[in-house]
Write a protein that binds this DNA or RNA. Sequence first.
DNA 1: TAGATTGTTAATCGATTAACAATC
DNA 2: TAGATTGTTAATCGATTAACAATC
Lengths: 208, 208
Amino acid sequence: MDDNKISLATTRRLPLYYRCLSELNEKGEDKVSSAVLERLLKIDAATVRRDFSYFGQMGRRGYGYDVKILLELFNDVLKQDTAANVAIVGVGNLGHALINFKFHKTGNARIKMAFDVNPEVVDTIQSEVPVYDINEIKQRVRDEKIEVAILTVPNSQAQRVTDLLVKAGIKGIMNFTTEIIDVPYNVTIHDVDLSLELQALIYSMDQD
Amino acid sequence: MDDNKISLATTRRLPLYYRCLSELNEKGEDKVSSAVLERLLKIDAATVRRDFSYFGQMGRRGYGYDVKILLELFNDVLKQDTAANVAIVGVGNLGHALINFKFHKTGNARIKMAFDVNPEVVDTIQSEVPVYDINEIKQRVRDEKIEVAILTVPNSQAQRVTDLLVKAGIKGIMNFTTEIIDVPYNVTIHDVDLSLELQALIYSMDQD
DNA sequence: TAGATTGTTAATCGATTAACAATC
DNA sequence: TAGATTGTTAATCGATTAACAATC
């Protein structure tokens, strides 16, 4: 039971729980019920209880859950390992915006550096993040133990740059291009296709 | 059968098919099989066939699908209505990046205007997109028939600005904040939580 | 004790995919 | 005709949720 695989859907909700519990804790709330979390997070109370129960019996019947205990749990689960080191590859509009994005606020990620080909940004520091020439990927990634890359290069460069990243030892790529990129089995790709998301929204609006 | 509701998962794949078929068409390909699409898009061939079959019998047994016919179909399905008019609300780093994002390239969306409170950007034009004061939302949204808003304001402003948008008659909101915002039943929310996506990637990397 | 809420089972829903008859 | 590939059924998988006994 303890070793039961936690479902993908559940793991995606963990940061939401963590965020919400942090806020409750700051407001001085000691306890919270699955019914309240349903209202706050728009996640069915049964789903909340089921999710929590993956980690053991975290609550008390007739009372609810202790905010601090849950917070500690999720803190452990989510930050288990030291924060992941992340590099942004491609400092265009989107890349630049993501450099400024406060990923560390919720997550266990830290933007350590960025790469680009444009001599105007190479060897500058953007919002405390150093920008290096893309030729230095291999060396820098190894030296600073970067594990994750955020790929915000033009589509046409996506696969080529990905190959460089893989060779440098990157283990996960958040792909903002719309290319479908190939990687070895031991590298994880997570596609974030903003056009697709907008399209999906518009489509579901028309659906009524 | 014709009126069979198309599943959410399928509708989210439609833009991917459309994109891929466009590329095949440009390369001069006349036909394509579900097996080839599986390879190109990493979507199971059976899923591809099932998806296409929602629109009738689009293929020819023993041959495959005619690229041009499919392209026409998806063009119709996806752009059925005239392109949706979109406003970006909050011209910070991310908002600015999204102004420059080529949403029209795949989709049927057009960024028509942006809103902000900062006097430094209000009444300027950013990459051909006019930026207005947030007080003008109601009037501008109505006059220009804006239906969709991309919300890139600070978290603390998310609900307040959403209320303004709803009052102005917006029907869909792509929410880049991490707030869980409330809207009436007839307004569609689509959350895009970049921290969450990165977190999910890191989590799934550790999973081996 | 009475009331409240968990933890968990079982039903249900939605999506994927294997398999294969139909047929170009 | 023989070979290829669709269209569709049925099996399977994964996730949600209703329901309720357990119990604080």
